[in-house]
Design a protein around this nucleic acid. Structure first.
Length: 465
DNA sequence: TGAAATGTTGGGGCG
DNA sequence: ACGCCCCAACATTTC
């Protein structure tokens, strides 16, 4: 027996397959559930810069609170900085140990080190449990102990060596919070309105129940055709689970387990989950990747930082419909289709030769699913400077990509309404329609921009050191 | 998890 | 009938 303080954080907002909760419940004794509300993160000015993420997080937090209450426990939401709050409450509430889910991204590692130190000085163990990834980052390695630099061998090694266990069920009930707790300031889960935001109905609903419904929809309706329809901008062929993995409203192994078997399409989807593992492996090994390219020959690459071009890209007025639709989908809905992310990223890094970190930061702020490891890997992949990246000379043609993956222009028309009445024949190259449109001409010519980038990259990357 | 340039092949029109 | 050219279709190479 003893008293466990379970510290829920922004990446494990669930009660199902929650290792710290299950471990504490197994051990018996008192159980206190805590969420620390950092006033820095939950400030109106900051929230306005990340509106979609904040909305999803708040809904998921309220869902977690309701679920814990339903199970007989309670979520204490305490304002403050976690490095201060957690050690203070551990002492004040006489916890014997503090449990949390591992958080392996740089800010989480640094914070957990400080907290472990502070708790250690108070004689309280700090236990981090797995659940963030299928395999703890860094555990899948080559024969000589290095991380795989190429995805395919990584995936093969993962499948051979990693045994993904069955998810833990949600607890049937939880012990009520102890009655002798010293009173501390708690706050209700903030409302969007209190942060100066209005609910955006385009952002998917937060919380475990909505997440489970999405998983079921995907497995029942979309998984079978995943291999083909995953690339279609105009279809709902993707899982739409990214924000649930980001905030932990579904555990990664719940998703993995739900798509076991199911043939080739499911194997393809599991491959995408393994890209996530790959990204977490590398970021844990190389926290500096958030600042610099994986491939060192790109460290001094002469990227542009042209603010006018960047603004056109962010606001969706480059004149290339597929690129602009992606930009507007991001701002309006907090989500961008995977194929559209690639098209938009390629355009920024190659046609515009802008520093990929500008796009990376913009995506991280506006994506509901914005995840450091995955976002960074994706951007570095597109810019050609990443781990197992696409070659620098591979330049997506935004017109062809649009024609291939949005043949009727339905995706473009949804997010670029100025083009709604345009014939599908011209939808990806509206300047050829011979019509006056309230839509910008291309800010760069595709062929010229492509040639310019290839020349720039060749000169920089092949020049003798 | 590309695209464009270049090379090759083969059928048909035509002198 | 034959060779030549044209060019679409496909393959290979290059960026």
């Amino acid at each position: 027996m003893g008293r466990a303080l379970i510290w829920f954080r922004g990446k494990d907002l669930r009660v199902t397959d929650h290792a710290p909760l299950a471990a504490a419940l197994d051990a018996g004794g008192d159980l206190i559930c805590l969420f620390v509300l950092d006033p820095h993160f939950f400030a109106p000015a900051r929230a306005r810069g990340l509106p979609h993420r904040v909305q999803f997080l708040l809904e998921s937090l309220r869902s977690l609170e309701a679920n814990l209450t339903r199970l007989g426990s309670k979520l204490f939401i305490v304002p403050g900085r976690s490095v201060e709050v957690v050690p203070r409450l551990a002492t004040l509430w006489k916890a014997d140990r503090v449990l949390a889910s591992r958080w392996s991204e740089p800010v989480g590692v640094a914070r957990d080190l400080r907290i472990a130190g502070a708790l250690g000085r108070q004689g309280v163990p700090f236990e981090l449990h797995e659940g963030e990834t299928l395999a703890p980052p860094g555990t899948v390695r080559t024969g000589d102990g290095r991380l795989h630099a190429v995805f395919t061998p990584f995936a093969r090694a993962f499948e051979q060596r990693v045994l993904v266990e069955t998810p833990l069920p949600a607890p049937k009930r939880l012990p009520p919070p102890p009655t002798d707790l010293a009173r501390v300031e708690t706050v209700p889960a903030p409302s969007l309105e209190s942060l100066g935001l209005r609910r955006n109905p385009e952002v998917l609903e937060g919380g475990e129940r909505a997440a489970r419904a999405r998983l079921k929809r995907f497995v029942d309706e979309a998984l079978g055709g995943y291999s083909i329809s995953r690339d279609r901008l105009d279809q709902d062929g993707t899982s739409r689970l990214s924000q649930d993995l980001k905030f932990g409203t579904l555990s990664i192994r719940t998703v993995w387990n739900a798509v076991r078997g199911h043939g080739e399409a499911a194997r393809r989807f599991r491959g995408e989950l393994l890209w996530r593992e790959f990204a977490y492996h590398w970021l844990r090994e190389r926290p500096d990747l958030l600042e610099k390219p994986f491939r060192s020959e790109f460290e001094a690459f002469p990227w542009s930082r042209d603010e006018a071009l960047f603004a056109a890209w962010k606001e969706g007025r480059t004149g290339y419909p597929a690129v602009d639709a992606a930009a507007r989908q991001l701002r309006e809905t907090g989500f961008v289709h995977n194929r559209a992310r690639m098209i938009a990223a390629s355009f920024l890094a190659k046609h515009l030769a802008l520093d990929f970190r500008m796009g990376e930061a913009h995506y991280l702020a506006w994506l509901t699913d914005g995840d450091w490891a995955i976002n960074d890997l994706g951007w570095q992949w597109s810019a050609g400077c990443g781990c197992d990246a696409q070659p620098w000379f591979r330049v997506f043609n935004p017109i062809l990509q649009g024609q291939k993956f949005d043949p009727d222009g339905a995706y473009v028309k949804r997010f670029v309404p100025e083009l709604a009445s345009l014939d599908a024949r011209w939808i990806h190259e509206p300047w050829k329609a011979g019509r006056r449109l309230d839509y910008p001409a291309p800010i760069v010519d595709h062929a010229a921009a492509r040639a310019r980038f290839l020349q720039l990259a060749k000169a920089h990357l092949k020049a003798p050191a």
